[in-house]
């Protein structure tokens, strides 16, 4: 760089000072750019890249996912081309199955597929955009810090720690590939530092040369194809008729609601973690009160009586049991009739 500048400079002496000035400015600009590349990016920079990188990076690879005693792995090919996301996911353990997606069209071949609602499997589309922007205020609830460099699946990565500022949520560690910002590894950790959930690519190739053939269904089996209609409403309004939530941890805002069959459900997210609250008339079944955990996921159940009707309140999410309990305890049913209409 310096060499070039010097060379230009000597040639530019004669044409005059104005051209020299331009060249100098250019040189300084370029040099400044170069220096910025080498200076360590701050944590906010990487947080900003996280969301877009998930959709707009093209890659293929295999990742493992562990929570509690469970370990599973999946193969993924992801392509972003002409503004369209194409994806093929193949569980690597046990059953043959796969999810293939092109834009809004999804074909799903999965064990027990009947239970997976395709339009909710999709991490992109309008919802994902909404959520990506919600990643912004994450630093209000988590203390972001760069904790060094590492190498994952052959790629240089930067490791980002998001330490929960309160004990209402878990801490997260994210490993992002340096050139794209792609999430290649993540931990969900308790306040004591125990890793509760672990996600990591074991092999990864970030490349733009993914052929069409990598997005073709190869599994034989019952296929379900579905066209995903674009969501008409941009704000996912929580379905909370007839009950209210008296408390939720700071920073958790209503998100896309899961679809509960007979009752009402609402979901909250703080940009990193999410929990869902389900309220249903309990009919004949009695549920115990208390929490169960698998990895970072807590299920807190309780019964609630309102107007001679018993309700289940269930909180499911990647939050500590105490937070889940507090959320569940704050549910108040003020209009049991609203459920009656819905339940039938």
């Amino acid at each position: 760089m310096r060499k070039t500048v010097t060379g230009i400079r000597t040639r530019c002496v004669n044409p005059g000072n104005s051209l020299l000035a331009i060249v100098m400015v250019l040189a300084v600009f370029v040099a400044g750019q170069t220096r910025a590349e080498t200076v360590a990016r701050d944590a906010e920079y990487w947080l900003d890249r996280l969301g877009p990188a998930l959709n707009m990076t093209s890659y293929r690879g295999v990742f493992v996912y562990a929570r509690g005693d469970q370990v599973s792995s999946m193969q993924i090919a992801h392509r972003y081309q002409d503004g369209v996301v194409e994806e093929r996911l193949v569980p690597q353990d046990g059953a043959n199955g796969e999810i293939v997606r092109k834009g809004m069209r999804v074909v799903c071949v999965l064990p027990d597929h009947g239970r997976i609602q395709l339009d909710q499997v999709i991490p992109s589309g309008p919802f994902a955009e909404a959520f990506s922007s919600q990643l912004m205020p994450v630093s209000r609830w988590y203390q972001p810090a760069l904790v060094g460099d590492d190498r994952i699946a052959g790629y240089d990565v930067v490791r980002l720690a998001l330490k929960a500022k309160d004990e209402l949520r878990y801490s997260h560690h994210l490993w992002l590939e340096k050139s794209t910002g792609l999430l290649v590894k993540s931990h969900v950790r308790s306040s004591g530092g125990t890793v509760l959930e672990h996600f990591q690519f074991t092999s990864l190739e970030i490349t733009d040369s993914l052929s069409d053939s990598e997005f073709v269904i190869r599994t034989e089996g019952e296929e379900i194809a579905r066209e995903l209609a674009p969501k008409t409403t941009s704000s996912p309004a929580p379905r909370m008729e007839g009950w209210t939530l008296g408390w939720q941890p700071d920073g958790f805002i209503p998100a896309a609601a899961p679809r509960s069959g007979k009752g009402q459900a609402v979901a909250f997210s703080d940009g990193l973690a999410a929990f869902s609250v389900f309220v249903e008339p309990s009919r004949k079944i009695m549920m115990p009160t208390g929490a169960s955990r698998i990895g970072a996921t807590t299920v807190y159940m309780k019964q609630l009586e309102a107007g001679d009707v018993d309700f289940f309140v269930t909180v499911v999410g990647e939050i500590p049991p105490r937070t889940a309990r507090k959320v569940a305890e704050s549910v108040k049913v003020d209009d049991a009739l609203a459920f009656g209409a819905l339940g039938k």
Binding site: S72, M74, I99, I116, Q120, P123, S186, A257, P258, E318
Partner: peptide
């Protein structure tokens, strides 16, 4: 409930593959 939450999460939290993993793990 677990599955519904996982489904939502795979859409929701902007976590891409992690969401898928939770979903497949739950189902």
């Amino acid at each position: 409930y677990l599955l519904e939450h996982a489904q939502h999460n795979s859409v929701g939290a902007g976590r891409g593959s992690v969401g898928y993993a939770r979903l497949v793990s739950a189902s």
